[in-house]
Nucleic acid binder design. Structure first.
Lengths: 185, 185
DNA sequence: GTCTATATTTCGATAGAC
DNA sequence: GTCTATCGAAATATAGAC
């Protein structure tokens, strides 16, 4: 073995995620990733097709991460409590990895990527709780209402769109309570 | 007058908006804007500080546009109906100008820009209807719930995140009805 | 105010040696 | 698989003539 592996795909993706969070998508360059994993930029192309491919891999990894957080919310006896915990976990994830989160829900040129299937799996716990609350027939509509609200809330929060004062945490709890009421029929 | 004005700030901003919608933010270059308004790229710098400034101006114009659409929803006698019409107008605007819409709610390095004050004014009709429905005390929380849902819905819709089938238009109407119920207390 | 010309920077990606 | 070297492309922004 003339030249042993000095890095790996996982290391590259992890480095990319770190750079993304620390410096933003514009600073997520092949050069920056290479510096962080300790190789030269051209070496990255042995494991990643191009920059777009790397961004896609980072998005996928982030979606899986979100899915794990939501799946960690155990199925309880009280669906309203479960809804609340899912919503809080969702927001906490967005706060922990804001740029990766934005990447998940950013409009892509090709909307039908593997990230979207993964996203569907990630929010499966939501579909489960809305089925319990709203019934199987309205489960999908209810899940869309709930995820739309949660996503919109944290997006606006992170964009600084909540600038009229008031307690933002409390506004989120208000939304949780109102939506739980609204969906439970 | 040796060299009469061959363009204007309004023309530059309008051209930028057109390019943004047609080709995306990455293709919104000074060169492309210059081509469209019919001058050379350096001439733009007489009216716009730099590219970031142009993007800000485009965002502001788009926010004002959204505000006019929402303000056009007259105050009716039925607040639930008014809520529904505001929500539909909001979504229609996002569909008509998807990239400009995304720009409004995109996370910015400086969250406290003039765009955000303008956005606050733009969604004032929402605050008015939630005050009627939920009471003055909960008007802000309710407005945040409603705008978060609407924004999240169209964002996910445009990102292709609703890929489990079902009727997306119907899901939006479902959300309208549920939120009107939930906020009316 | 607009132009030509150009400086500067940055980045993605490839070729070919080892 | 990693490296050095480099290409090529693009874009922002400025200087100075008219």
């Amino acid at each position: 073995m003339p030249t042993p592996d000095r890095t790996s795909l996982d290391a590259i993706v992890d480095a990319g995620r770190d750079i993304l969070e620390a410096a933003g998508i514009a600073r997520l360059t092949m050069q920056a990733v290479a510096d962080r994993v300790g190789v030269r930029a051209p070496s990255l192309y042995k494991r990643v097709r191009n920059r777009d491919d790397l961004v896609r891999l980072i998005t996928d990894a982030t979606v899986r991460d979100l899915g794990e957080r939501l799946a960690a919310i155990g199925v309880g006896t009280d669906p309203r409590r479960e809804l609340a915990e899912l919503a809080r976990a969702f927001r906490a994830f967005a706060h922990a990895r804001p740029r990766g989160y934005q990447l998940i829900f950013a409009a892509r040129p090709d909307p039908a990527g593997p990230s979207m299937e993964a996203l569907t799996r990630a929010v499966e716990p939501v579909l489960r709780v809305t089925a319990t609350l709203a019934g199987d027939h309205h489960a999908l509509d209810a899940a869309r209402t709930l995820t739309a609200w949660a996503n919109g809330f944290v997006s606006m929060e992170m964009a600084g769109a909540f600038n009229l004062g008031g307690d933002v945490d409390q506004a989120y709890e208000y939304g949780i309570a109102r939506l739980a009421d609204a969906l439970a029929r």
